[in-house]
Design a protein around this nucleic acid. Structure first.
Length: 969
DNA sequence: TACAGATCTTA
DNA sequence: GTAAGATCTGTAC
């Protein structure tokens, strides 16, 4: 190397993590191997190589290397055994990619440098020194602040993602000191991600101030008694040794022994064939094409390389898969999760430390802090629990445990500022930053790929921010993490207050406590800002603390892929569905309401005459007294609370015996139900554009299904004629149709697959009527000309199996004696012995582990399966048998939903997904696109299990379009 | 005002 | 027999 030469040093390990976190997960089509980080890495590297080949830019490298951390202990661990001790293990689906990425660097024909016992940063420091001494220039491709100490004459940092070059001036702008003082600054501030202690209470601003005054760290430590601020002085005096230790930890070693001499890093033209072969093996079609074109290689002529992902898969630092006894410092994910839990309980929440942010400069400082910690817990305070109606009242943020603040935006009344005297408002005592400014300042952080946003029930905040034009990204959701880890029938839910009490041992201020209860309740915007600060900042603080406890458990318990592939990506999809809403027809609903009212009134009059007195028909208590007390009808049963039972089944039986009154009561109940729950209630939910926006919950079922509320659009009537008419009120917008696509018999198909029942699998493969086939197997009746009743019985049994059948339940369903039902079940098990095996297998797995699993790895926990109460145990066993089937179906439609929008976009279709009803998706489609849309929707839904699970039965989707939901369904 | 129970709607 | 949510009543506070 000589003067005029230029060395590029790529911080490979940092690159990997950035590529991984900045990009959506991606799997190789052919085998589902995670390759998202590899793809991001290759794209970035190619861009860099391509730019550098363009000599017109004038910064073309003559030398080039990619440098990685090597998983092992470094000299820093000898200095301080806590060094990097709280670094989380890399995510599970990233680990196999470490080896692939090293392969990628070799495919690019670039030197891939790593050395046992040294961090990438030390190697970079050493190469940079050598290059500079030889008279060359250096560009370090990284944005890590640890490398800023190397910046100086001839050495700059290049942040490729932000396309920013950092020289001494930029470093000073960012940290308030020139690069020569970065080491001293880092020693004072410390680094929570590397567990460098620093001096408590000293942040980057204070550190820069101190260095400005005292010149160097040593001078500061010697003359610390001159510091005026008592707290600061005491903290520094108490931690002199810790600061010196920190300095040694953050100082990069510029004299590491090198295996590859500097001159060997000389750049040469990449081997097109080798690179294309690798990219083909990874199945990166776009990049393969681009690279082949640029390097003049014909991609069609190149065979994919044989890439062994396993061989060099030892990750960089902190590989939890490392063998025990290895000197590595890394904590296993399990140990980390345990430590975080212990830590959480011992760090008390201090509400008095929370800050109210009332001016832009302060907000900017908090944002800068988020860039330092890389994480921002975030919560919105609004005027409504309904995200579609909610206006922002304020925002809270947290950047580290205990370090949280509240930004009031639209508070009114006392203490809000507008009632204060002008002077006070100017002084900032009661000021609020205008909404527009808050959003302008926050948008870059909220969408910055390098800053992880953490929320609790993110879909809510996502929707609120989406309505202000901000698409939160990337994010983690503590509610969803908890749900993935602890979905259970017996545990409570995943709400923040519950999680906080359970995991942190801390009871946050409840919303009720803040605003008051009942009539006395205030709008949050009218609450005193200091009180709201305590409440809101605490929410952000608690969310961040929960995240620190919960996130490592994902790795420890092997649940990362469920969270990252089935939960998190669904949040934006559902947010958009909720935002769109579905159109309803006011006229149809009000006409139906009128008709139902008339009919109910007629029935009510008849009922009162038949009963001999007026009474409240809607009161089961009064009704029971009339039927079984006054009129003395037979068959009176008591519910568990001692009331007369008056359920529909029982009234139907009485009606069948020729009693008029019960029949009319059943009819009255149906009509009033339809009116009260649907035709009267739905119009209240309609917005100005006549659209209804339901809210989906991702975390309220044990099995992985979604639920819908306010209003529940997953239980709109369909079975009776009068009920179906309500569906005709759900309509498409002008020029559009509603397209309904539903999985046919998905749960039975999954049962056939999971229990491996040859007859059922074959029947599904041949596209036969599954209930008729079952009946034929069981009763020996040919399918041709089978009586409807025989098929009906088989159908009930099939459903029963999925529900974890009992003779009692089947008997009730078919209205046959329990003994007869038992003999059906016995015969079913004889004909399909695999079913009994499957059920036994599932039960014993659940007893052993306490949970059951779907084909995609989702878990449902059933601790009560070990109950000593046989009734309880039997009920839990049925649930445990049903959960893998229902849950796998839920996983499959989730996968379809996550892929659907991209698939439609790729075909340039404008269909919009509106509703999910467990096995059905409803879209709104422009009239002229219907024919083109149907096959795309079917393809995505039918292929949704691929490539992770290869089903032996086909999934079949029926799709139909019409002007309203009734005709489409 | 808040909550539990009964009933009924869906997949 | 599985999984949900809404409405209404009646009661406890």
């Amino acid at each position: 190397m000589q003067k005029g030469d230029h060395l590029f040093l790529v911080d490979g390990s940092a690159y990997i993590f950035r590529a991984y976190h900045a990009l959506p997960p991606l799997t190789r089509k052919s085998d589902g191997m995670p390759v998202g980080a590899v793809s991001g890495f290759c794209n970035m590297l190619w861009k860099l190589v391509e730019e550098s080949r363009d000599t017109s830019v004038g910064v073309a490298p003559t030398h080039f290397a990619v440098i990685f951390d090597h998983s092992s202990t470094t000299f820093r661990n000898a200095l301080y055994d806590g060094y990097k001790a709280n670094r989380p293990a890399p995510p599970e689906d990233l680990r196999p990619q470490f080896g692939l990425i090293r392969e990628a660097v070799r495919a690019f024909d670039l030197p891939c440098i790593e050395k046992e016992g040294f961090e990438a940063d030390d190697l970079i420091a050493t190469y940079a020194r050598l290059a500079r001494e030889a008279g060359g220039d250096v560009t370090i491709v990284s944005s890590d602040k640890d490398l800023m100490q190397l910046v100086g004459p001839g050495v700059i940092l290049y942040d490729q993602m932000k396309d920013k070059r950092l020289g001494p001036e930029e470093v000073r702008e960012k940290f308030g000191v020139y690069p020569e003082k970065m080491i001293d600054l880092q020693a004072l501030v410390g680094d929570s991600s590397d567990n460098v202690p620093g001096i408590p209470g000293i942040g980057p601003k204070t550190a820069a101030d101190l260095l400005e005054t005292f010149g160097t760290l040593e001078a500061l430590l010697e003359r610390a008694d001159e510091i005026k601020q008592a707290k600061r002085r005491e903290s520094i005096l108490a931690n002199v040794d810790q600061a010196r230790l920190s300095k040694r930890l953050v100082t990069l070693d510029q004299h590491t022994p090198l295996d590859v001499p500097l001159d060997d890093l000389f750049i040469h033209e990449p081997d097109g064939e080798k690179l294309v072969a690798f990219l083909k093996a990874m199945e990166f079609t776009t990049l393969t094409r681009r690279v082949a074109a640029k390097l003049g290689t014909d991609a069609a002529d190149v065979a994919p390389a044989k890439v062994d992902a396993k061989a060099p898969a030892r990750g960089p630092d902190l590989d939890p898969a490392a063998p025990a006894g290895d000197t590595q410092l890394a904590m296993s994910p399990k140990a980390l999760a345990a430590e975080r839990l212990a830590q959480a309980a011992s760090q008390p929440v201090d509400r008095s430390a929370y800050v109210t942010i009332r001016d832009e400069a302060t907000l900017e400082r908090w944002i800068a802090r988020a860039y330092e910690t890389g994480i921002l817990a975030f919560d919105t305070e609004t005027t409504s629990l309904d995200a579609m109606k909610a206006d922002l009242v304020g925002l809270s943020v947290a950047v580290s445990p205990g370090e949280a603040a509240y930004v009031p935006i639209a508070h009114v009344g006392e203490g809000a500022g507008d009632l204060l005297s002008g002077d006070e408002a100017k002084e900032g005592v009661g000021a609020q930053i205008p909404l527009g400014r808050v959003l302008d300042l926050l948008k870059p952080v909220l969408t910055d790929p390098a800053i992880l946003k953490v929320g609790q029930n993110v879909k809510y905040d996502y929707l609120v921010m989406l309505r202000h034009g901000i698409a939160l990204q990337p994010f983690d959701d503590t509610m969803l993490i908890s749900y993935v880890l602890d979905a259970s029938s017996s545990l409570e839910g995943h709400g923040m207050d519950e999680l906080s009490e359970r995991l942190l041992g801390h009871k946050p201020i409840s919303y009720r406590e803040l605003v008051g209860t009942g009539k006395a309740a205030k709008a949050i915007a009218a609450c005193p800002i200091d009180k709201v600060t305590e409440y809101a900042a605490e929410d952000a603080d608690v969310t961040l603390r929960l995240w620190r406890v919960l996130k490592p458990r994902l790795a420890a318990e092997g649940m990362i892929s469920v969270y990252e592939r089935l939960e998190r990506p669904l949040v934006p999809v559902l947010a958009r569905m909720e935002e769109r809403g579905i159109r309803a027809d006011r006229q149809i609903l009000s006409r139906l309401s009128g008709r139902f009212a008339l009919k109910a009134a007629g029935l009510e009059a008849d009922i009162h005459i038949l009963a001999g007195e007026p009474f409240n028909i809607g009161s089961p208590k009064q009704l029971g007294e009339i039927l079984f007390g006054k009129l003395g009808l037979p068959g009176g049963k008591k519910t568990k609370t001692g009331q007369w039972a008056t359920d529909a089944k029982l009234l139907e039986d009485l009606a069948a015996q020729g009693h008029d009154l019960p029949r009319r009561i059943v009819d009255w109940r149906q009509i009033t139900k339809l009116k009260g729950t649907y035709t009267d209630a739905l119009p209240v939910y309609m917005d100005e554009a006549d659209r209804i926006h339901t809210s989906y919950s991702l975390a309220s079922t044990t099995t992985g299904r979604l639920s819908s509320s306010e209003p529940n659009l997953q239980n709109i009537p369909v079975r009776t004629q009068e009920g179906r008419e309500i569906r005709t009120a759900f309509v498409a917008a002008g020029g559009h149709k509603l397209l309904s696509a539903d999985y046919s018999q998905i749960e039975l198909r999954l049962l056939a697959h999971m229990a491996e029942i040859p007859q059922l699998v074959e029947a599904f493969q041949a596209g036969q009527d599954i209930h008729a086939t079952t009946a034929s197997e069981m009763f020996g009746v040919p399918v041709e000309g089978m009586p409807a009743d025989v098929r009906r019985r088989a159908k009930a049994i099939n459903f029963g199996i999925v529900y974890g059948i009992s003779a009692f339940g089947l008997a009730a369903q078919l209205a046959i004696p329990q003994g007869e039902a038992a003999s059906y079940i016995k015969r079913y098990f004889e004909r399909f012995p695999g079913i009994r095996d499957f059920m036994d297998r599932t039960k014993s797995f659940a007893k052993e582990t306490g949970y059951v699993e779907t084909l995609f790895g989702r878990r449902a926990h059933y601790p009560d399966i070990r109950s000593s109460n046989p009734q309880v145990r039997a009920a839990v066993e049925r649930a445990a048998i049903n959960a893998p089937i229902q849950g796998t179906a839920a996983d499959i439609i989730r996968r379809a939903m996550i892929r659907m929008e991209d698939a439609l976009r790729a075909e340039r279709l404008s269909a919009r997904m509106l509703l999910q009803v467990h096995d059905e998706l409803v879209f709104e489609v422009p009239d002229e696109e219907i024919e083109a849309t149907i096959p795309v929707v079917k393809r995505v839904m039918e292929g949704a299990a691929d490539p992770v699970v290869e089903l032996v039965v086909p999934l079949v989707v029926d799709a139909r379009a019409a002007g309203n939901w009734d005709e489409a369904h």
